[in-house]
Write a protein that binds this DNA or RNA. Sequence first.
DNA 1: TGAATATATGAGCAATTATTCATATATTGT
DNA 2: ACAATATATGAATAATTGCTCATATATTCA
Lengths: 120, 120
Amino acid sequence: MDAALCEVTFIHEDRVQAAQQTLVDPPAAARLAAAFDALADPTRVRLISALIDQELCVCDLAALLNLTQSATSHQLRILRNLNLVRTRKEGRIVFYALDDQHIRDLFQRGLEHIRHNSQG
Amino acid sequence: MDAALCEVTFIHEDRVQAAQQTLVDPPAAARLAAAFDALADPTRVRLISALIDQELCVCDLAALLNLTQSATSHQLRILRNLNLVRTRKEGRIVFYALDDQHIRDLFQRGLEHIRHNSQG
DNA sequence: TGAATATATGAGCAATTATTCATATATTGT
DNA sequence: ACAATATATGAATAATTGCTCATATATTCA
């Protein structure tokens, strides 16, 4: 048989139709997934957490997280490309900061989730 | 030379010390990254979005997203293992629903982020 | 201009992962 | 018990990715 999709009987057609209302379309899903993916790595989570209250330069971040300069810079680029952080240049030093309050909120919600689950 | 970490001069030692306050430790970072990672895939994003207002069974979800039953089940397991969704069994049918309001909030924040960025 | 410093980036590798395929488990009805 | 149905899952594979290494770009200072 071929790689059938859901060949099974439609169980709840009314609900499926209703779900169309909230279902995000594939392009939006891709962008949303990419945004969450930016926070889906322990190193990037720590970078964001370090920037919660203040801006820091690449070398600060590398020292703080015990990373190489290269690894830090690579990860920061990902965060910047997805508009989670913004940069400010001062001479040769580049300061990174969270882009806006949305990011802080999103991050906090995530923290609440893991505190709410897996251990009290 | 060896794979040096941040061998460069400490630029802002005071800020680095301050950042220790908000810096999440590696275990928490791993758990937080895992939580965000659950939403870091377009298929899982669409599954969550379909469950915003109501519960749906596996076959409903597969049909709605045009996925195979197997792929749907695999992805739902990831969401369930991370406590983003919960299940209710009724005979052979397993209904999936969002675990709590936190998830809805987290998802909404993500949506706001992508709407705020990349296009007006 | 040339050396030093701070950051950025391309290539490569090891590790992770989303899907498919085949099959297992669980429930219902005959 | 047996067939049918709904879901779950292990193995395999192609694609993605985080880090390292080497090197490039940019800025400051002498």
